[in-house]
Design a protein around this nucleic acid. Structure first.
Length: 297
DNA sequence: GCCGGTCAAGGTCTT
DNA sequence: AAGACCTTGACCGGC
């Protein structure tokens, strides 16, 4: 079990997803920004090695506007060696890596242009992981998409588009239950059709699930990950006290996290802490997990 | 310098 | 048909 946090380390000055506005796009600016993002990624990874946090999510905009038509620059070639160098560091330290195309990426949209943009974004994010020479245990996690009043059709549409993806991309893509529409059960239905692994988001399951116990859900989704996929990835958060339903907590609730570890005893997975204070909570979680025989860091 | 309106992108719900 | 909200950090123009 590796423990990690997404994208940002607040105790370091740098930001790995630094970007800029479309209106101020220039090739020069792009090169400068990607270069700084890669510097920062190296800095964060070194911090994470030092602190035993071996699961990390790379920000989607590590290469700003990578899948946008404005960007005609061959960033893949220009930064090839730098990506290789970071990838080599990742591999030699035993990191697990994910990326998470965000809400605008809707593979099951009825709109063809939306689907095309989603394909382009998925290809870009896959290229980042490929350039780092990471194997198929490095994943892209995406939500099932819009419900459009008929989830059954939405699931089938996702499956059809999934089949059209390049094999390389199919080996990286996993589907995650969301907090509003598609439950773990829905994701399992999609898995039955096209074989895509299911990433369990614990908090989303609490918000939008059938009340099934955690261990039951984990046993269910574990079988959707084959050896080449690595251990299942799991997202963990909890409710912000006094906040709207679905809002992520500011800082980890260690009682809740310990209960989560206990409820999942004996099941292998890597866990991503989607908590606002990022590495601060990850550090606390690691202390709580040190006595767990599954923990590696 | 500092403040805060605004930012590529979709979906869903309200009016 | 159009607009607000979701959710988030930080860019960047205006002061």
């Amino acid at each position: 079990m590796r423990i990690g946090y997404p994208c940002i380390n607040q105790s370091l000055e740098c930001r790995v997803g630094r970007t800029f506005r479309l209106a101020s796009y220039s090739e020069e600016r792009l090169i400068e920004t990607v270069s700084r993002n890669l510097d920062c990624l190296e800095e964060i990874l070194a911090y994470n090695v030092e602190h035993g946090m071996l699961f990390f999510r790379i920000a989607s905009d590590i290469v700003p506007f990578a899948s946008h038509p404005v960007n005609e620059f061959d960033w893949q070639e220009h930064f090839r060696e730098r990506f290789e160098k970071v990838g080599s560091y990742i591999r030699s330290n035993g990191f697990r890596i994910s990326m998470h195309p965000d809400q605008f990426n809707v593979l099951n949209s009825p709109k063809q242009d939306v689907v095309e943009r989603t394909f382009a974004e998925l290809i870009y994010q896959c290229e980042v992981l490929d350039l780092m020479k990471l194997d198929s245990t490095a994943k892209l996690q995406i939500h099932l998409g819009g419900a459009y009043g008929d989830k059954g059709s939405g699931i089938k549409r996702f499956a059809r588009r999934y089949e059209r993806l390049d094999e390389r991309l199919k080996q990286r893509l996993v589907v995650e239950n969301d907090d509003k529409s598609y439950t773990v059960e829905d994701c399992m239905e999609l898995h039955e059709i096209c074989g895509i692994p299911v990433l369990y988001d614990h908090f989303h399951h609490i918000c939008n699930g059938g009340g099934e116990p955690t261990d039951q859900m984990l046993h269910l989704i574990s079988d959707t990950w084959v050896q080449a996929d690595g251990d299942p990835m799991v997202d963990y958060s909890s409710q912000l006290a006094g906040g709207k339903k679905g809002q992520h907590t500011e800082s980890i609730d260690l009682d809740d996290f310990s209960a989560f570890l206990q409820a999942t005893e004996g099941i292998d997975f890597d866990v991503m802490l989607e908590i606002k204070d990022k590495q601060a909570s990850a550090l606390k979680a690691i202390e709580a997990a040190r006595s767990d025989p599954r923990f590696s860091g």
